[in-house]
């Protein structure tokens, strides 16, 4: 439990820095956020393209710029800060892939992925949300390796379920059912 206390303290100081950036355009606070998040964002990019160091820098830079510009729209009551950063990194990755794809999609992803975070939750949802996140964190470590591997391919390496099934030489149905089992154990699926 000592570990989770330090991680929640760290989260509180990160949130404080975001607030300073939002309210005072504080560059020292921004530099702190850079030190904490850039290595993670780079790792996220390298998980998909292991040797692409420049791509990793580009993604990290893009995410950090969005943090600077959007800090005032971040509300800790609506989303955990780490989750907010994850969604920014994911959105930047989607933009990057769209710009660099052979057949460019005519669909602008900007408005597609930003309609969830803005809705204000009721007090019940807030309690529920914090508990859900704690469940995910504590149960992730206990997940069978075969399920954890698939989640990592899907979320970090950015593979589709189809690509995951080809790489692991597993039937598509097995991949889907392992994802489903993992989500159930993590209590991500509230209703099914």
């Amino acid at each position: 439990m000592g570990q989770s206390k330090t991680s929640s303290e760290r989260l509180a100081s990160l949130q404080g820095w975001v607030q300073k950036v939002a309210e005072h355009r504080d560059k020292a606070a921004f530099a702190e956020l850079f030190d904490h998040y850039v290595p993670l964002i780079r790792a996220y990019s390298l998980a998909r393209e292991p040797a692409a160091d420049l791509v990793a820098d580009e993604l990290a830079q893009e995410v950090m710029m969005r943090i600077w510009l959007k800090a005032s729209s971040y509300d800790p009551k609506l989303a955990n800060l780490n989750t907010w950063i994850f969604t920014l990194a994911r959105n930047c990755r989607i933009d990057y892939l769209r710009r660099n794809s052979r057949y460019v999609s005519e669909i602008d992803p900007t408005e597609i992925f930003e309609n969830i975070e803005d809705e204000s939750p009721g007090p019940f949802q807030l309690v529920h949300q914090t508990r859900a996140q704690d469940n995910i964190r504590s149960r992730l470590d206990k997940l069978p390796a075969a399920q954890a591997e698939i989640l990592s391919k899907v979320y970090l390496q950015g593979k589709s379920h189809q690509q995951t099934s080809e790489e692991l030489k597993l039937p598509l149905g097995t991949v889907k059912s392992r994802v489903r089992l993992a989500l159930k154990k993590l209590e991500v699926l509230v209703t099914r």
């Binding site: 780490n82 949300q129 970090l156």
Partner: peptide, 20 residues
């Protein structure tokens, strides 16, 4: 989707950091 995003976030936190 909030829960799924939380999951993505937790997976990201487990990566080995790669300093810029």
């Amino acid at each position: 989707i909030k829960h799924l995003n939380d999951l993505g976030s937790e997976l990201m936190q487990q990566l080995k950091p790669s300093p810029g």
